[in-house]
Write a protein that binds this DNA or RNA. Structure first.
Lengths: 348, 348
DNA sequence: ATGATCAATGGGACCGTTCCCATTATAGCC
DNA sequence: GGCTATAATGGGAACGGTCCCATTGATCAT
């Protein structure tokens, strides 16, 4: 591709107006949602000129005077988490339906990156924010919220915030998992999670696991770790769990707190030649490949695409709430059990 | 969260200037990269006022007069494709290092969505564009390119475009796959692809497959299909391939054109109780779960994170090329073979 | 002493668009 | 006929910042 020194710059409203023989205000009306206020003849002249000149509105100029950036910020803790991908897809589709653009920022679970991204989104004057990020509200987030930027928390709650939340019902998810594992005959469980301090949903799941063990006549233990540098520790924890002689007559199962953990645990079990089902394995969140591993891995699926959509819808409703009378909502979706062979014990 | 009727609006440069007792030009200099032109005392006064007032620059105003939106558009054919996810991650990181924001648009392989997204990115005056999308250049894309917007094609070429390209070396990838399958003793192959008309890389892989069969003393057949509504057709094609009596004494293998196909084929084979290795299975692109399925699925991995980074770096170099003397480049990365059990035949 | 250069600072114009008020012509009602 | 309302259209100011030219004072060289 050769860059030509005589590149025609992007046409402006003034140029279209001059070409069509009308005022710039009429052209602005044509493109700005007031087309019906113009005579048919004028509309046609404007359309012809705009097309001839290849006019495209400058959203930055519009945003400056009109006050609308048409941008929605989405701050994600980990875009490579399978959960994030589907949520983003749903959110992006919902934005598009409203003529909005989604700006996705990835924090890799780092609060410093989160602050940077929030500052950047502020500089673009985003019209709303979807937050799926670290556990503590930053000053940057507070400033945005204080200034009235609509905010929806995605799969998170923040302790100092009474904000709209769209998420999986974590308690129901853990209850359903424990029910299933108990029904399938497992009695001693290991719950594996990424660091709970990074996300309230992880904390809620972990707490619920502990709380509900006795109710389900189950015993259990937990391990939390950072998958970036603690894979060895996971291996050891699983080995210890499987070798635990004090529970040698209790059928054992491992419950994984999210998709990233399910993958890591499955790797460890397969590498150690563990027969799935004999040792139960279940993961929170569906994974497209879960049915392929051994006898199939049992999962509790969240409706992720739907959650992404709901987050945008909730945000747009919050944006319409000019006088602040709409109470905060927690929209919690139930998980759906996909029972597969990894939670079927063999008679022997 | 309660919306307070007395929300302080975002502070402007004029307010900071008034508070610090300086001119707006000085404040602009402070935040606009000319800080060293100000006396130390003035810098401190500005900093204190900006912090007190919670000032954040308005990128829209900056973009309007200064001519820089600081946005990079990235148009992806399918954000749920595993390839896309890692590339996006790498690209986003590279953007961040340069103080740029990545705006990701997902087309779901639909040319109409692509046109819409390009128009939208134009309206934001993006400073560059990474394109990984449908096969035909649109008028919208032509207009952007003609106007001098830097452009990098990602895993694609466009027939009418002499643009920078960053991609896997598709020919090397197919050659490596055929080498491996031939070395492992397979003699009759099925190549499965998503529709080649949607992406030049698919077309290149398909053509190379046909071209190189004889060179490798292999025979083969191909099937191309849209995974959205042709799963049954895939099942049938695989059944026919496996039942093909004219090649009953040639060990058979299936080569999958991308990660989405690998998942779909693996599902079919596992569901039909096919023993991997007995029938070979290999996929272009690494998948995090590939090692977990049966004896492990052999893959040819692209360095996806690196490709995403390279795309941004290439784009930024193109942007610096004011006088158009930098020739177009095709930056092609080699795949790396991950041999696993799915391409190991059993003696029997 | 004079002239040139540079550091430091500031004000006005501008960027592309929207918003707001103004004008003109026409139609309908009293 | 006069008055009011409405459709259609337009021009100027403003949005928040950048850019460009101007000014002032200090320093250095001749």
């Amino acid at each position: 591709m050769t860059v030509d020194a005589s590149i025609p710059p992007q046409a402006t409203i003034r140029q279209v107006a001059a070409d069509a023989g009308v005022s710039k205000t009429s052209v602005s009306r044509y493109f700005g949602g007031e087309r019906e206020r113009l005579s048919v003849g004028m509309q046609q002249r404007i359309q012809a000129s705009a097309e001839r000149l290849g006019y495209r509105p400058n959203q930055m100029a519009r945003g400056l005077k009109g006050g609308h950036s048409r941008l929605i910020g989405m701050v994600m803790a980990d875009i490579r988490n399978p959960f994030s991908i589907d949520v983003m897809h749903g959110a992006e589709q919902a934005c598009r339906e409203h003529g909005l653009s989604l700006v996705v920022c990835n924090t890799d679970n780092d609060p410093a990156q989160e602050r940077e991204h929030l500052a950047l989104l502020t500089s673009y004057r985003v019209e709303g924010l979807i937050i799926n990020a670290a556990g503590h509200p930053s000053r940057e987030l507070s400033a945005l919220a204080d200034r009235g930027t609509p905010l929806v928390l995605l799969d998170r709650t923040l302790s100092d915030y009474d904000a709209d939340v769209v998420a999986l019902d974590n308690r129901q998810a853990i209850d359903a998992a424990l029910n299933h594992l108990q029904t399938q005959g497992y009695r001693h469980l290991l719950y594996v999670s990424e660091p709970p301090s990074q996300a309230s949903s992880r904390q809620t799941r972990l707490e619920r696991f502990h709380q509900q063990l006795e109710t389900h006549q189950l015993s259990g233990t937990t391990v939390t770790l950072d998958l970036i540098d603690e894979t060895q520790r996971l291996d050891n924890a699983i080995d210890d769990f499987l070798a635990d002689a004090t529970h040698s007559d209790s059928p054992k199962a491992i419950l994984c707190g999210n998709g990233n953990i399910t993958l890591a645990v499955a790797r460890t079990l397969v590498r150690h030649g563990v027969e799935l089902g004999n040792v139960g394995l279940m993961g929170i969140d569906e994974l497209p490949w879960a049915e392929l591993v051994g006898p199939g891995i049992t999962t509790l699926a969240q409706p992720t695409d739907l959650i992404g959509r709901a987050a945008i819808d909730t945000l747009l409703q919050r944006r319409e709430d000019k006088d602040g009378t709409l109470p905060s909502r927690h929209i919690l979706y139930h998980g759906r059990l996909n029972a597969r062979g990894s939670t079927q014990r063999h008679e022997r």
